[in-house]
């Protein structure tokens, strides 16, 4: 393993994050505060409790997931797309590194950034509502796994994308709707039966549910299923990335 290379890519990518520190941290803090004002105070005041948890607290795991998923995707996809766009990818392709090292560097950095943002949102939420975490270790594990798997997914998008529009296409048209409809702001049990059935085809439901379980012990689907979903998603992404590097698809001519 070329650990030196992994470290170099990681440090280089993190430097980009720290260059835009204000945007990286202030933006999630502001958007989280806005969600609390709208959903917590304005709408939440009309919803008393969801399965014994105040609505304000109930949406915290969903809010974190929403930002973590979108940030992990956008950081990882941009991280690998930008070198392709400006041509610096030549260096990566001519360096003595294998796909695992490249992925560890880029995805590791993107996942770290998403993780920090998740923690910032958790901290911001604590200013508005009482957040208790019943299973802190499980919460951390779910958070880390979500950061990693969505960063892997973002990495694939970054390699696939041929222009900036395509870079935004999947997050905008697929991921954001799936996250919003994945029970981030409501419990699946609040939906009519037919929509409940449809929701179970949405992979995000399993992730949000598992994450929420680690906070309140409440889940829409069994925790084991959630764990299976996230590890399965990670494995699929890893498999696709392995194939990409093996065939040189969209990176080597």
């Amino acid at each position: 393993m070329n650990w030196q290379a992994v470290r170099s890519i990681y440090v280089f990518e993190m430097a980009r994050f720290f260059r835009t520190l204000l945007q990286s941290f202030v933006s999630p803090v502001i958007s989280t505060s806005l969600y609390f004002v709208v959903f917590g105070a304005a709408i939440g005041s009309r919803i008393n409790e969801v399965e014994g948890v105040s609505y304000g607290a109930f949406i915290v795991p969903g809010l974190i997931m929403l930002s973590v998923m979108t940030q992990a995707i956008s950081n990882a996809s941009f991280g690998i797309y930008f070198p392709k766009f400006i041509g610096t990818i030549y260096e990566l392709l001519s360096a003595p590194v294998n796909f695992l090292e490249i992925v560890l560097g880029y995805v590791g950095a993107a996942a770290t950034k998403a993780f920090f943002i998740g923690i910032v949102i958790l901290g911001t939420s604590a200013l508005f509502v009482d957040v208790s975490i019943q299973h802190p270790l499980a919460m951390l594990a779910f958070l880390v796994l979500t950061c990693l798997s969505f960063a892997l997914f973002g990495f694939i998008i970054g390699i696939w994308a041929g222009n900036f529009e395509q870079l935004q296409l999947i997050p905008l048209l697929i991921v954001t709707p799936l996250v919003f409809l994945g029970g981030s702001f409501y419990s699946i049990s609040m939906l009519p039966p037919v929509w409940q059935t449809i929701s179970f085809f949405n992979p995000v439901v399993y992730l949000v549910s598992g994450f929420r379980w680690s906070f309140f012990g409440l889940a829409d689907v069994p925790i084991g299923l959630s764990l299976l979903a996230i590890t399965g998603f990670t494995a699929i992404c890893l498999g696709i990335i392995w194939w990409i590097f093996k065939t040189g698809w969209r990176i080597r001519t």
Binding site: Q4, A5, R7, S8, F12, E91, P96, V97
Partner: peptide, 10 residues
């Protein structure tokens, strides 16, 4: 520095 690290050099 990035280039040196990428090529596995200390």
């Amino acid at each position: 520095k990035f280039s040196r690290g990428l090529f596995g050099k200390p």
